[in-house]
Amino acid sequence: MTRTYTSRARELVDTPSPVISCTDVNIYYGKFRAVSDVTLEFGDREITALIGPSGCGKSTVLRSLNRMNDLIPGARVEGVIDYHGQNIYDRGVDAIEVRRRIGMVFQKPNPFPKSIFDNIAYGPRVSGMQVDNMEELVEKSLRDAALWDEVKDKLKQSAFGLSGGQQQRLCIARTIAVQPEVILMDEPCSALDPIATMKIEDLMQQLREQYAIIIVTHNMQQAARVADRTAFFTAMASEETGDRTGQLVEYDTTEVIFERPADQRTEDYISGRFG
């Protein structure tokens, strides 16, 4: 079986220089343990894909990385999620600060009911960033998100007039505008057509030069196309309670995961035998 992987600018080293490290992370919704004992490191300026069947906890893990899980009543994270030597769940750490450094793009494009310009300027404005020239920042963000040429003449128009793919790139541009270090993407292409998907994937390759990207995807081809490393999750019934809890099965370079996975469950999943 031959698969072509994206040409990589850099050779991957065996262990990533981590930007975020999870150690023994357990995530609970009330009493229910959604994810158990996840330990993995997300590399800086790499694309890491989280794959696995529905209910395996991959989105839950992603949302815990910038504390978006805090918004769900009863959600609780145990263990350590280390970002620059600090556990982001420490008492002294403000979720708002975390989210400014670790941005997020959602499954469904969710532009604000404002102009294209104001969508981009929103993040810098609310975070009180010192911006000398907002026009410049908006243009740069849109250029970086490969959207500038399509919208430069209609910055004052509502973002709702854009197509789904453009809206999603707008959401990426909006995230870039606050100059984060990490961008989380939760199935960013699942609501888009193949051409729009391709554009987002190309964009991810460019963004990888400057940002660490962590993407949850249901689409295994997408993981194979874009990701440097891939983590495979699955849901296992707990022996004590019978609840289905998400677990990390295998984490390696994308090539290893797709060509010669170590675990039989990974093999079964990527060859389409379950999931």
Binding site: E97, R99, Y122, G123, V178
Partner: peptide, 27 residues
């Protein structure tokens, strides 16, 4: 007002109060 708008705002580092004043309430 869809929950996605609130999430989008919060994910950009807006505080819950900023989210209400600048997104949810105007909408």
């Amino acid at each position: 007002v869809p929950i996605e708008i609130r999430h989008g705002s919060l994910a950009l580092g807006a505080s819950p109060l900023q989210t209400v004043i600048r997104q949810t309430l105007p909408a």
